[in-house]
Design a protein around this nucleic acid. Structure first.
Lengths: 265, 265
DNA sequence: GTTGGACCCTCCCCCTGCGAGAGGGTGCAC
DNA sequence: GTGCACCCTCTCGCAGGGGGAGGGTCCAAC
């Protein structure tokens, strides 16, 4: 039996951390003296401590570590670990994007953004809509667009999306993706929707979506400078997107802010 | 002038977060109404907000973000950012190591570790020593070993290190790296040191150092099982290390715990 | 037998970077 | 003047610890 100090030396986990893991039910000492509260660990708990150490190195939350340790068999354990490695992979991808975007943002002379107001008539489109959390929006979008593509054969124009402000402000909001078509079908989640006529302050964003908030900022500043007010969800139109080319630098996205009060200044 | 809500929409930073950035001095509103406390932002602050957003996406601490924003010229800014990207790179490398190590730890049938006790006589070596934080130990080691190699021409044996327990327990401790040689020189940080004679419980670890705590655990368990006590800093000897081969899988590191009370059982 | 020191215990506050909510003031349109 | 959107400050919560206070326990040396 090992006192907590010895166990700490053997595992390179601090005494404090071991106590916390006990409290969290992650690594319960083999015995605890009921009179003194002294913790004793068995040498056979060292490998468990090391697995926890590795998982924490990977920033796996304690709750998930517990789930992994409680897995009934090595296969289930492996599956849970693999799941986390995938999460890590995604995180890595996100980081790569942020780095690239930071580099572009700090690069000299960004191309100026051209903003103009355009009247858009009411349009009937085939759409999929739902309430989505901001973290899930990419996955949701991919699913919705795939369904849309499967159902709409005679699309005539670039697909687009409408994003409620609440999505950005409260982390959750209404999202609608659509494809324009002459006869919008009704199948599965796909159904016809008539988008109302609006005046749109539009600008076109070129490049990956990591940078899209820059163009958003430009449009917003323009709208403010021209004394307009915003009315309704932002509209994006994917003129050239991942369905058209694998090169994000070639993507072209039209950003439209519904406005009113044009030309007051 | 933009109210905080509008600015929030334009930058996709929550109102709460903007207030926090104000409080932290990161992004101070252009004006604050002294009567109501209402914050107003200028459209020219949008790019700054976006840079902060990118940096935070990369988990750059707010204090460092401020330092970057306060940099006098773009060149200095770029240097600071590059510094952080390097940190990120290192982090990534660490993560890769942890993943690989986790995989090995979960892999079936690890090779059993052979532990034995060996009497080591007092030895005089050329050494570099210092008090080091656990996070800096790798960098410190690299520098110390380079200096040692530059000064010791006639080394006769594998280099090694002595690591105080405090390094692991308190995050900071005494470290000594050395090369055995017949005539230890005294130059720069290098000086002769006589390592005392000890009984060492030794085991050899094969593979990258990401896994070394596993072997540590084995040695520790063996020491406990054989009713020995530990006396003095752990000794490592780099039989085959990064100086010998670039393939970490081929590394061989001898781990020695100074013990006494041998053979009580 | 007691004293010193190493070791262990619990409890509480601190850190970062937010999110959530309470409780209250402000600005503007109808 | 009444509702509503918007803004303010304040406090509390989170993970995953670090740091320290204040006190009990064990063991060997004197």
């Amino acid at each position: 039996m090992l006192a907590i100090g010895e166990f700490s030396r053997l595992t390179h986990l601090s005494i404090r951390t071991l106590r916390r893991y006990h409290e969290a039910g992650l690594l319960v000492p083999a015995t605890v003296d009921p009179a003194t509260g002294y913790r004793s660990y068995g040498a056979d708990q060292i490998p468990t401590a090391q697995v926890i150490h590795r998982l924490r190195d990977l920033d796996v939350p304690l709750a998930d570590v517990r789930r992994i340790l409680e897995a009934p068999d090595p296969a289930a354990r492996g599956a849970l670990v693999a799941e986390h490695l995938r999460r890590l992979e995604a995180e890595l991808e996100r980081t790569r994007g942020a780095v690239a975007s930071l580099r572009r943002l700090l690069a000299p002379d960004p191309a100026p953004v051209h903003v103009e107001v355009r009247a858009v008539p009411a349009t009937t489109v085939a759409a999929v809509e739902g309430d989505v959390g901001v973290d899930d929006v990419l996955a949701w979008y991919a699913g919705a667009m795939a369904e849309l593509d499967a159902v709409v054969e005679d699309g005539d124009g670039a697909p687009g999306g409408l994003y409620d402000n609440a999505l950005f402000e409260e982390g959750r909001g209404h999202v609608l993706v659509h494809r324009p078509t002459a006869r919008p079908p009704r199948r599965g989640r796909v159904h016809p929707v008539t988008l109302p006529a609006v005046e749109l302050a539009v600008a076109t964003h070129t490049g990956p979506h990591d940078d899209i908030d820059v163009t958003y900022g430009e449009v917003g500043a323009w709208v403010v400078a021209n004394a307009l007010a915003v009315a309704g969800p932002v509209r994006e139109t994917y003129l050239v997107g991942p369905r058209d080319t694998a090169d994000p630098a070639a993507w072209r996205t039209e950003i439209g802010w519904p406005v009113f009060g044009v030309g007051e200044r």
